[in-house]
């Protein structure tokens, strides 16, 4: 592996902090959805006919999750160390974090979709 290629990966390195991006976005979207529904029902008495803010927020959340999933996916493909595997190495740690981020991104993507679907179907304050 050339030094130049290694640098490109290092710049996008997943860490424990980037690991929590997809679930945090999911949590934020969840909170935003419920607050938005509660506030529009309390203030307006009804959902907006075309909830622009809600659609934009959902698209943004999905985009961030997709992006972190894609970055993580690129890094799961990194070549591991050669045997013997006697101790944890930096590259092992990176590959593990990348795989975890990828799985969390998948879960969060579905989570955001499931949170958004009721708005499409119900659209009622009761």
């Amino acid at each position: 592996m050339s030094d130049e290629r290694r640098k490109w990966h290092e710049r996008l390195n997943v860490t424990l902090w980037t690991l929590i991006i997809p679930p945090t976005v999911w949590a934020g979207h969840f909170l935003f959805s419920y607050l938005w529904a509660a506030i529009s029902c309390a203030k307006e008495g009804a959902f907006a006919k075309f909830p622009t803010l809600f659609v934009a927020g959902t698209v943004l959340a999905l985009a961030i999750i997709l992006l972190s999933g894609w970055i993580a996916h690129r890094q799961t493909g990194m070549r591991g160390d050669s045997p013997p595997h006697d101790e944890g190495t930096e590259i092992d740690r990176l590959r593990f974090l990348a795989k975890s981020t990828l799985l969390l991104a998948g879960l969060s993507f579905v989570g955001v979709l499931f949170t958004a679907l009721p708005v499409v179907f119900i659209g009622d304050c009761r």
Binding site: V110, L113, F114, L117, P118, F121, I122, D124, R126
Partner: peptide, 15 residues
């Protein structure tokens, strides 16, 4: 499966 169930069940929640 869960997505399909959600899509199928949500309309039943509509008053």
């Amino acid at each position: 499966v869960l997505t399909a169930l959600l899509l199928w069940a949500l309309p039943a929640m509509r008053p």
